[in-house]
């Protein structure tokens, strides 16, 4: 187990290193000089040069890469070209919305998908199963912003249970903020839940045909006990894989939902920074998302080992 962990950690750091190099290189080769963009069409060459040096854009490639990575390690992400404020602060503000939103949506996804998937698998080929499979088909097909608009129509405009958008800020009260994130989280979670339900269902159906499930029945377990005590855990590996992918997607891919609900999240930050050539913000946010994805994968790997003892050997 220790050896498995060390191995996973080593792979985690290697991935981070490679990712940072790739991101830096890509940003480096993108055409367009941020300094020239910031100063406008009529700027003089020496003014641009002065700004370039102020922004730290005039050193060698290796030097700038090391400065960037070194800064990030101590929490210094540099200064935004556009707003002239520390990037770290900008990201932190946005992260306080995007991270809770992603976690909220992920929890909803899991809470909806796992029981539904298990139920569908246990009723395979019966009416309940067909109903659920049909519903997931619709869930996968409809884009989340459409759900978002429907939710706003029903719960914000008609019933007036929630506000149609905006975020009060965590300092205004925990439950108030949770309430503000509820509709966006539901809109994000529904399509994901549809996908995860299908994965849970098919994975469990496969396990239901295994010999050990018959052994469990022969032991005297009822069919539900068999599913819960023996089936579920064996069916969980593909589900965990998808959950890992979904978290990464929810963290970075919430941009449309953030737009619909007017939430100042990470997605909007990236979008704005790209259109303003604020490359240092783009670079940092992308690196942060990569970090989140790699960390998620690491956690998923650990979860695999917890679920399946056969994976606890280092290969």
């Amino acid at each position: 187990m220790i050896s498995y962990l060390t191995k996973r950690l080593a792979s985690l750091f290697a991935s981070l290193l490679v990712a940072s190099i790739v991101i830096f290189t890509v940003i480096e080769v993108i055409p367009g000089d941020p300094a020239a963009y910031m100063l406008g069409m009529n700027a003089r060459a020496d003014t641009i040069a002065a700004l370039r040096s102020e922004l730290g854009l005039d050193g060698g490639v290796l030097e700038r890469y090391l400065a960037w990575v070194g800064g990030m390690l101590v929490g210094d992400f540099g200064t935004s070209y556009t707003y002239r404020t520390p990037v770290a602060d900008m990201i932190a503000d946005r992260l306080w919305i995007s991270l809770p939103l992603a976690l909220y949506a992920l929890c909803l996804t899991i809470v909806i998908a796992i029981p539904t998937g298990v139920f569908a698998a246990s009723r395979r080929g019966q009416a309940g199963d067909y109903g659920i499979v049909g519903a997931t088909q619709i869930g996968v097909a409809i884009p989340n912003f459409w759900f978002a608009m429907i939710l706003i129509l029903i719960f914000a405009i008609q019933l007036r249970w929630f506000s149609a958008g905006g975020f009060p800020g965590w300092e205004k009260g925990f439950w108030l903020s949770v309430k503000a994130l509820t509709l966006p989280a539901i809109a994000l979670a529904l399509p994901q839940a549809a996908i995860l339900t299908r994965v849970m269902r098919s994975s469990l159906i496969e396990v239901l045909g295994e010999d050990f499930m018959r052994t469990a029945r022969a032991k005297g377990l009822t069919s539900w006990q068999t599913i819960l005590h023996h089936g579920l855990r064996n069916a969980l590996i593909p589900v965990l894989t998808i959950i890992g992918l979904q978290f990464a997607f929810l963290l970075a891919g919430g941009i449309i939902i953030e737009q619909v609900f007017a939430l100042p999240g990470l997605g909007r930050l990236v979008f704005q920074s790209i259109s303003q050539r604020d490359l240092i913000v783009v670079e940092s946010v992308v690196m942060l998302l990569v970090f989140a994805v790699i960390m998620t994968n690491f956690l998923v790997d650990l979860a695999y080992a917890v679920v399946d003892p056969r994976l606890r050997v280092a290969r």
Binding site: D211, F212, R214, T215, A218, N234, D308, R310
Partner: peptide, 15 residues
């Protein structure tokens, strides 16, 4: 009690 043919798959691998 019942014993099956395939001992390799008759036991739950995660317990």
């Amino acid at each position: 009690g019942m014993v099956f043919q395939e001992p390799m798959t008759a036991l739950n691998p995660v317990k």
